[in-house]
Nucleic acid binder design. Structure first.
Lengths: 220, 220
DNA sequence: TAGATTGTTAATCGATTAACAATC
DNA sequence: TAGATTGTTAATCGATTAACAATC
């Protein structure tokens, strides 16, 4: 089973998918500054990426550039957005309305990155009934009902680690298909539920290790 | 210049450095449950990693295991912590005491991951003078003085994107050697300043793309 | 035209996975 | 002893980088 089908749709390397939003952010800024065309070497210089890499990444989107000139910045922005699916916006539910949850709710830029948090959930009486920006914090016991009624497919998990697995299971049962997991817990869920982990720990480790190496290096 | 020296100290692959904290988190939980020895296949099964990969990663730490038995869990935890430099704790300053900043301050686990946030900075009168947990929010204009007095080497950047570059430059001038950057801005800093980016956008892109692919797949 | 950049194919590099001997 | 797991070397895989023809 699971015939490991090399689907023409998922041959895009994950590193490419991760770099495209960085290009997008830069391109939007450049557009605001009145730039009309832009070349891969310029993007690469700005974002410290190999120019060939940039060309290859952009090629995946299907946008065509012109030799010696570069890419039309409007086409390129539109092309990347469409390629990444950012033109259509998913509704998302967030569970765990603590500081991190509130921070994510207040990231208005997410709306231009493919989804929008339309409600938050928690179980603490202190926060249920309050608002974060224009998002209401509801009790988690209405999550399932609302999720299926509104056909919400994306869930954001910013609860304490201890309840993460339990909450994630509830999410899956309520029809959530993709979970953005900010807890350090490795979630065990039915096949087909997509989990994207954003654990702070891995990043910390890289930072601390690099710093240690550099300080050691300077000593000798 | 920059003789690309293959230093024996930084031949550790970055993927390995990123996986080790995940093992560490799992091992600590297992220890709490009374586990005394643990094997690579078990760790791998739990965290969905290839067992050979786990063995290789653990080998970097220098901890020895015993065939048929596995690793002593105390030695392993201690070994990973020492290898990653988590046994000594750096002081860190955080700039931008908004929701995200507050969330990070309230992550007490960071203390066991190599650093500790000892003060927060902002420029808004609304937050300067307040507290986040037991961390005071000070005005950014005393950052430099305090950073050099206390020899703080790690800075966490959770400001709005617009001021990120400027704040980062100030950090570098104040002697900060490593910046954990949560803004989507590509920071341009003097050579030698380590930057670790944790941009939300890349993760969003991967999640949205996977979800799109799956929904498409189910349609046909 | 001259030359910079795109677009694509080939070479390199590094990480993952497989194979297997050593060993408890 | 038998067999599972470590530890290490070799094979594979995939991404990055280099090379180069096409082209504006």
């Amino acid at each position: 089973m699971k015939t490991q089908e090399k689907d023409s749709r998922d041959i895009v390397p994950e590193p490419t998918v991760k770099r495209l939003p960085l290009y997008l952010h830069f391109l939007k800024k450049a557009k605001e500054n009145g730039v009309l065309t832009i070349s891969a070497p310029i993007i690469g210089q700005e974002l410290e990426q190999d120019p060939t890499q940039v060309v290859k990444d952009l090629a995946y989107t299907g946008v065509k550039g012109r030799p010696r000139v570069g890419y039309n910045i409007y086409e390129l922005i539109k092309g990347i957005e469409e390629f990444l699916g950012f033109n259509q916006v998913y509704d998302a539910f967030l569970v765990g309305a603590g500081n991190l949850g509130s921070a994510l709710i207040n990231y208005p830029e997410f709306r231009s990155f493919g989804f929008k948090i339309i409600a938050a959930f928690d179980i603490s009486d202190d926060v249920v009934g309050t608002q974060r920006g224009d998002v209401n914090v509801l009790h988690f016991n209405v999550f399932k009902e609302l999720a299926s009624k509104l056909k919400v497919r994306i869930g954001i998990l910013t609860t304490p680690a201890k309840v993460a697995q339990e909450v994630a299971e509830q999410m899956a049962k309520a029809g959530i298909r993709a979970i953005w997991n900010f807890t350090p817990v490795k979630l065990k869920l039915p096949e087909g539920v997509i989990v994207q982990n954003t654990s702070m720990y891995s990043n910390v480790a890289v930072l601390v290790m690099k710093l240690n190496n550099q300080l050691k290096k300077n000593k000798d």
